[in-house]
Design a protein around this nucleic acid. Sequence first.
DNA 1: CTTCGGACCCCTTAAGTAGA
DNA 2: TCTACTTAAGGGGTCCGAAG
Length: 278
Amino acid sequence: MFGVVRKGRRRYLKGEQIAALDGIEIRYTGESLDQSDLDVWESVLHAVRLQELGTECRVTSYALLKIMGKSDTGKNRATLHEQITRLRANALELTQGRYSYIGGLIAGAVKDEETQKWVIRLDPELRPLFSTDQFTRVEWAARHALRGHQLAQWLLGFYSTHAQPFALKVATLHRLSGSEAARVDHFREKLRKAMRAVEAATASQGESFIFELRGELVHVRRKRRKRSDQYRSSSGGSTVPAAGGCRSSSGGATVPAAGGCRSSSGESHHENLSSSEW
DNA sequence: CTTCGGACCCCTTAAGTAGA
DNA sequence: TCTACTTAAGGGGTCCGAAG
């Protein structure tokens, strides 16, 4: 659903079937969503992850931008506002196995223009889709390293959902990513470049991601660190696990109090994200 | 230190074209 | 298959000032 969208080429989709793998059917109505929209949605999920989905989450624009590693400027806040609006202004019909969901990505959002504080609600019906075996751990640091490179971010997200990736045709990835490349051979070039970027980004995180193009088939092999290793190496000793960072006691809602989920080690949001299980 | 807004402006992308 | 270049359209960093 969150595909590769060329700058300025966002489309309006109406009940359109989104390309998906076997076993999943998605129909979507709304503006097409790109990788930066996914960043926002994942950041919102991060901010509410300790609560029941559907409960209120209080978070400031400043805190959300911090989570995404973006600077807190007027322009970025305006972009964030647009993105949250876009995530609300859609309808998706998603069927996976026994579960089916019809609704929006965000149930509702209230913003105080004076304080820049958001109250964002997610639909509790989304919960079955995020049970443990369906949940994809987000390689946040690697994703950040690929910012601006939509296809590479998409590939990273796509392959992180598969423990043993199977070979796919270039044309299949072309379709799944929603790339607008008119010709498959053009896309093949973009794909090669993006795969190299993913290889470099994951390598810098101590994980291996090996890509090979044999004829029309794309082979990917990856090796992950064990979870215990991830905790050890990314928590850096002084970092407070993010899981505890955003808690406040105001009516059960999570409130990144001014300064939000900051931990003692300063540059820590991304580290926390990559090591937390959300 | 956090939060906020605005001005300025360089940089980047995906897609397409051309050619080796 | 690969590289280099062009184009449209933002993305977002930096600097500034200000307030709590």
